[in-house]
Design a protein around this nucleic acid. Structure first.
Lengths: 220, 220
DNA sequence: AACAACCAAATTGTCAACAATCTTGTGTTT
DNA sequence: AAACACAAGATTGTTGACAATTTGGTTGTT
């Protein structure tokens, strides 16, 4: 495993482009120029356009024929809609995880939450790192559901979009302690192999985030 | 509106390619040759590849670098997974539809079901046309949810894949009369603006299809 | 000054040729 | 005869140039 680096420019490009958009290097609403990006990434326009097609189907950019592509504009309304979908899908994931999770996956989750706890106790309020780990928690449960279609939808299709929102609105601190407590409760339900409880707790967990967003929305 | 035809070859191509794959013109598992398709569609390989990228992200084909693309192979297992996801998402759609559907949309749904009833009474057992209309019913309810993310996921992302499965396994007659009866029950719940009932009925409706599939799966 | 028509520059869409990689058939070796 | 190595052919990945369309500014008219 000396040279594992992907040799397909188009594929690498897709990931680099996603990363650049998600972390705000290309701000929301900004135009994306093909010749310029091709120069920046040191590629021809062919592979770049192929990458753009894929990023478009992730709903990270909007393209208008003969006009060009723009990074999608964020809005609290859209975010609330995404969280509503997450509620349904991750609830389902938690339910299925109870039935299909392995002991080793449970152990991984437990270690993860313990690390989070230590981290919160040490650096009280450092919510950035927490959010990263928060993703890991949800990510692992989704994978543990073993439903490939569900995993594809959440981890491939919605993941980057959610990440982009989080990155660009770091206001949602949402009390790490409370979230961590809820995560432990969800994990316990999964360990007890209680699908209904796990689903209910996961839905409530995400719903509380959604309600925060909708409250912000009303204040406008 | 004299010339509404899309002038972007790449965009048209995507739809034509989706249609060709869905209706089995290119059978499951068959290899897709870029030079050949470019000749068939009378296009250069550039736009064709862009269309392929999009079709790939719909999970209709699988691409392996430097080897080529193949139409996805169907399996009852995958289908069951998709139906499980549908259960969660369309249940949510029915719930939201109760809150956001308009009177004119209700009227459209009512007409649709009445036409189905007449059709079933006339040509007893013609399940093919029924299935087309079945899609319309689900499609309309999804749209009525007014959650754009949900609509995108179901109508753009999963729709074609489901259609492909249906097209290639017309065994699932699944008793049109029973399904129609369930559709009426769902519509009534929506008219009564009863989200919990509508969601429950929709989930049960889809679940019965999923169980049929899982039974077939066990017989193998 | 306001507005419409038009032209030029830039950008997107498309193409055909070139380079890199995989597949397949042949021949050799054990 | 089976297995491996190699080479020819075909296919995919990439590039740079050309064609078509939009955009923004200029000019002329009302």
């Amino acid at each position: 495993m000396i040279e594992t680096k992907e040799q397909i420019k188009s594929d690498n490009l897709t990931e680099r482009l996603i990363e650049a958009i998600v972390n705000g290097e290309y701000p929301a609403g900004s135009k994306i120029s093909e010749p310029e990006l091709a120069r920046v990434f040191n590629v021809s326009r062919g592979p770049l356009r192929e990458a753009m097609m894929r990023v478009e189907s992730l709903n990270l950019v909007e393209r208008i024929p003969h006009v060009g592509a723009r990074v999608v504009t964020l809005s609290l309304g859209k975010l609330a809609e995404i969280y509503a979908v997450r509620e349904a899908l991750e609830g389902m994931a938690a339910n299925l995880a109870c039935k299909h999770i392995t002991d080793s996956e449970i152990a991984t989750l437990e270690e993860l939450l313990n690390r989070h706890q230590s981290h919160i106790e040490e650096v009280d309020g450092a919510s950035y790192f927490y959010q990263q780990g928060d993703f890991d928690f949800h990510y692992l449960i989704i994978k543990a559901s073993k439903n490939h279609q569900l995993i594809a939808l959440l981890c491939d299709q919605l993941y980057h979009l959610i990440r982009m929102y989080r990155f660009q609105s770091p206001r949602s601190k949402s009390r790490p302690e409370k979230a961590l407590y809820e995560h432990f409760a969800i994990l316990n339900a999964i360990k007890a192999r209680d699908p209904e409880l796990a689903e209910m707790l996961m839905r409530r967990h995400i719903k509380s985030s959604r309600l925060l967003i909708e409250n912000e929305l009303l204040e406008e």
